[in-house]
Design a protein around this nucleic acid. Sequence first.
DNA 1: ATCACCGTCAACCATTTGGTTGATGGTAGC
DNA 2: GCTACCATCAACCAAATGGTTGACGGTGAT
Lengths: 115, 115
Amino acid sequence: MVDGDRSENLDGIFSAISDPTRRAILQQLGQGPERVTEIARRFPVSLNAVSKHLIVLERAGLVRREIRGRDHLCSLNGQPLREASAWIERMRGYWEERLDALERHIAAKQKAGRK
Amino acid sequence: MVDGDRSENLDGIFSAISDPTRRAILQQLGQGPERVTEIARRFPVSLNAVSKHLIVLERAGLVRREIRGRDHLCSLNGQPLREASAWIERMRGYWEERLDALERHIAAKQKAGRK
DNA sequence: ATCACCGTCAACCATTTGGTTGATGGTAGC
DNA sequence: GCTACCATCAACCAAATGGTTGACGGTGAT
């Protein structure tokens, strides 16, 4: 298996990026790979907490880890985000059409009766 | 405020769509608005469970509710998905550039040394 | 007015989650 | 071979999650 156990991991992916600390880690990691301790230094929580966050991100496939001696170099993996994005866009594709009309309808109703 | 307390609700949005039942509800709801009981009939859990899921989706802004007598008509709201999509695309924008080179690098290293 | 139905609220339960501190296994540097 | 450092493991804790059953307040229909 070249790519690991990918595909239909949406639970883990969305769950992983639902945490603000984890999103911040990902954003930071977007600037380039970093060691665990170095990542942790930017957050007001313990190293252990960050380590756990990284494990979560890794299991969701969002982060890859390259062990170099005693350092763990963490880097991003774009594939899961592509999956997540694909799901959202598929959803929006289903709606959008009907949504335009519907939302105007609701908005009007809200403006009128809702206070 | 026309739109409520939106903006930077990403925690709630991603958390809401990280549950498979909730994603299924959203997909089903994409076909058009439905009553709570009607939605619940399609899932192997109790009405109460679905009711709670709908409350979660509503608080995340993904579902709107129009009360018509004793029926609650649930419909989709596209805005939060747009926010979620925007965050993901922003992230992908940051990476992508560096990711192409990086991923080939990692993949090569994995194929070579990893077992 | 009664009865049935719709959906939520309340209490409870097991599991997961995000955090802590402390111990442990590796690796690097003297 | 010590000693320092890197990161995870382990145990623990409080809070949140997803599920259940049962009770309740509204609305509709007869």
